[in-house]
């Protein structure tokens, strides 16, 4: 009985369903492509990004926003497992107690790799180019995956506390959707009204997008990179503890 082995088994279980479930497949492939193309050609001309091609400014934003949503499937999946009694079965097995959530967050890393690769390829096609060193580009990729991993734990927690997949979906729409838009993902925060700007500047997504922009296209970074990593580590620390505690005490609905 090994925790790592059990987590890998669970991750494998989650990854197996991707090619079988059109929703999941569309979520990590078609949707990122659609966002890159749509935002570049529909909004691109209307938004001023002084000193940068819009696509260069925009791609780091879309990457972070897309990645912040990949875990959606995890929240719905956990909620569904709870409702169907599968979590009960897993908890009654002599398996590692951390494996269900560790497996989910691991398979999300796989999903994020697919989504990120799709977006980069699509970005290159519509004119995106790195303006940076290979080391910084790789660090940016690392930051994206770290952020995705952190969001996975948030989604694990949401899936465990939601009373149904529908309510998990509602929580995500109410909390994470606005959070991802009221940020520097698509527009410079200077263009926003005062109150929104304050929110956007305090938003970790802004910090992380700015850090990624700096790593990939050479915008001034300031303290953003350090804070971006801190945010991710902080989110992982808090939500992995919350989700694990909730998992131990949770019962099927």
């Amino acid at each position: 009985m090994s925790a790592v082995g059990d987590a890998l088994l669970m991750a494998q279980r989650n990854l197996r369903r991707i090619p079988r479930n059109p929703d999941l497949l569309v979520g990590v492939t078609f949707q990122p492509v659609m966002f890159v193309v749509l935002f570049t050609y529909v909004f691109g001309g209307a938004i001023k990004t002084p000193g940068f091609d819009y696509i260069d400014f925009f791609l780091p934003g879309i990457v972070i926003q897309m990645i912040s949503f990949t875990g959606y499937a995890t929240a719905l999946g956990i909620s569904d497992d709870l409702r169907k009694g599968l979590i009960d079965r897993f908890r009654s097995l002599p398996m590692s107690r951390s494996a269900v959530l560790a497996g989910r967050t691991l398979s999300d890393v796989g999903m994020n790799v697919i989504a990120l690769a799709t977006m980069l390829i699509c970005g290159f096609v519509v004119g995106f180019g790195f303006n940076s060193t290979p080391g910084k580009i790789a660090a940016g990729v690392g930051l994206v995956l770290l952020f995705g991993y952190a969001m996975s734990w948030v989604y694990c927690f949401v899936g465990l506390i939601a009373s149904s997949p529908e309510s998990a979906s509602a929580m995500i729409t109410v909390v994470i959707f606005p959070l991802s838009f009221v940020s520097s993902a698509y527009v410079p925060t200077d263009s926003m009204p005062k109150v929104l700007r304050a929110i956007a500047n305090a938003n970790p997504i802004t910090t992380i997008v700015d850090a990624l922009r700096s790593l990939w296209v050479g915008t001034p970074a300031g303290t953003d990179i350090a804070f971006a990593v801190l945010w991710c580590v902080g989110i992982i620390a808090v939500f992995s503890v919350l989700a694990t505690a909730k998992y131990r005490s949770t019962v099927a609905r």
């Binding site: 369903r17 079988r20 169907k84 599968l86 009960d88 079965r89 002599p94």
Partner: peptide, 17 residues
């Protein structure tokens, strides 16, 4: 947990497998 088997009220099997 290694000595028991449980069948709950719902058929707790993974539909996507």
């Amino acid at each position: 947990r290694g000595e028991i088997g449980l069948t709950g009220q719902n058929a707790a099997v993974d539909e996507a497998l």
